[in-house]
Write a protein that binds this DNA or RNA. Structure first.
Lengths: 326, 326
DNA sequence: ATGAAAGCGCTAACAA
DNA sequence: TTGTTAGCGCTTTCAT
């Protein structure tokens, strides 16, 4: 069923049907309008959006490339993106990169072939730069910032302030031996989180100890292993974690060894993923407005798609959520 | 940059370029092949997939409609789908329905307009039926089965056996007062899970008590509220939960009241979402092969897209994972 | 081994 | 108020 067939059934031209279907019906008689719409309804006609897109040169779909939707942080991000996109009439193609540059670049290529109107990206420095050089397409970098002169949007969070406040809280609560477990990625956000921790320590009277830092992945496993490692090498009465998953792993290791949280060791996470408040004990953490970040990203992306003049960078605030692990 | 421009630069026709780009180059001289490819590379040409799709009538993209990616169960499903799709050369458009029929139907329409090659659906009975009547498109129903004569694929799990085994385990472990907390949805899977529980109870010598059943949503909140409610109304020494989220909420309520799990009350979940093994205590549960279900769904979907003769229904086995809440 | 040309389903400028 | 028509970028048949 095509627009042409509808036109024939209605005894009008395809142009007329097209206008009606697209609401450009100011100078179309109510009679033919109704007639056409009835036929469309009766026949269950579904417009071919591909043909339309080819003609009008936009697809009303955006792509999002992220490491892994199964990770609670990213699934919340994805939801924020999808909800905001849907509200603005866009669909979203989801791509999981597992942080692999090869996948990131492959997906960027595929998304461009599919003529998405823009891409939201949580990816490595290299992929972004290389792709941007090849062909420009509206892009906003989400969560992970990247230095480039290209015109890309950025939505980030004040990571440094986050871990700074987290560590400060631990210090205020009386911790003297504070570990830091996080990711060893070379992303800005990882570096900033480490920096925030260091700043807080350096600023206090407790002395900085490299042995209290364990850097690996943003995973539960890292939290677990890191804690075990820290426990062996040094004494600890507080752990600042690079994200909530790490904190969950840390608490597990602690509990298994009969170490009480928060009495013996205090733990603080980062992100405030949805599960954190249900942990035992409920996790104290630095909240990122994850869902909102997703929303902001699509708002910004659509602005750049429409060539609107706007601020190309937005850094959102974190918030300390004190629950029961500190 | 279009295929035409590439053709001009190479001094050949668009037909030749097209053939080369699509590997239909058996009778194309190596010289022109190399020349064209070099130019494509040098110019950073990206084919317009929309134009291609319009011509060849497929988009190599599928849609998936599910209630909510933020729900751990669905995010794992989404990942399984995306991974399998990627392996077979498909992209996936993700849609969150929040179990709302209006959204389900809206998305089905949008996906059809975008000419996806097929749809994977976790949706209500009505939406599916209504949409199927309007226009046929390859579809596979995932996780939620629906009765219809239409030719749709189905991937499900043996829910009844799952809760039957779960309840049996509780009984074997000595529980005499077993509650059941689950969803009140009118889906087959929900009905089957209740049935499995009832069967196990009826089959045992402990008598069936309607007051020990609490039906609401598949959420942590329901688990919490349901447990509180059960505790008030009746005595309980075991809870069979409709999913892991409910189990997590139940355990939280129990712990808060100083009731020990598993000593005082045993709890068993359903799904084995990724977080369950990290709970405290690690959750005993009925494992669904979630990721594989996603994979199977796209395998089946692609088979129906290609009109392959195949089994249109597959029910996967659950597996009892005994950890420490029983 | 290569090319000409039709046509996929739609929109929009322009004509009537 | 409605219709004619070109053309979006590509593939593919059929010639050459």
């Amino acid at each position: 069923m095509t627009i042409k067939e509808i036109a024939e059934l209605a005894g009008v031209s395809t142009a007329t049907v097209s206008k009606i279907l697209n609401g450009k019906d100011k100078d179309i008689s109510e009679a033919t309008r109704k007639n056409v719409l009835d036929i469309v309804e009766r026949e269950g006609y579904i417009p071919n959006g591909i043909a339309k897109s080819l003609r009008i040169k936009n697809t009303k779909t955006i792509g999002i490339i992220m490491p892994d939707v199964m990770n609670l942080f990213f699934s919340e991000l994805a939801r924020g993106v999808e909800d905001a996109a849907e509200k603005k009439g866009y669909s979203v193609i989801l791509c999981n990169s597992d942080n692999k540059e090869s996948k990131e670049e492959k997906y960027i290529q595929i998304l461009q072939e599919k003529m998405v109107d823009g891409i939201i990206l949580t990816a490595s420095e290299n992929s972004v730069k290389r792709s941007l050089r090849r062909r420009k397409i509206p892009m906003v970098l989400l969560d992970r910032d990247i230095s480039t002169d290209e015109k890309v949007g950025r939505i980030t969070v004040d990571n440094e302030e986050g871990t700074y406040n987290a560590t400060k809280l631990l210090i205020e609560k009386g911790c003297k031996n504070i570990g830091f477990i996080s990711s060893n990625k070379t992303t800005k956000s990882s570096a900033q989180r480490l920096q925030g921790y260091e700043n807080a320590i350096l600023e206090s009277k407790i002395n900085f100890d490299k042995n209290k830092i364990f850097l690996q992945n943003y995973t539960i496993e890292t939290g677990y292993k890191g804690t075990v490692s820290l426990l062996e090498k040094t004494n600890i009465d507080g752990i600042c974690c690079g994200n909530d998953l790490i904190a969950i792993g840390a608490i597990k290791a602690l509990k298994e060894r009969g170490i009480k949280v928060p009495q013996d060791v205090k733990v603080i996470g980062f992100d405030d993923i949805s599960i954190s408040k249900y942990m035992d004990p409920p996790l104290t953490t630095i909240r990122q407005p994850i869902y909102e970040m997703g929303e902001e990203a699509v708002g910004m992306l659509i602005d750049v798609i429409n060539n609107k003049e706007m601020e190309m960078s937005k850094v959102l605030k974190t918030e300390l959520i004190v629950r029961e692990t500190t």
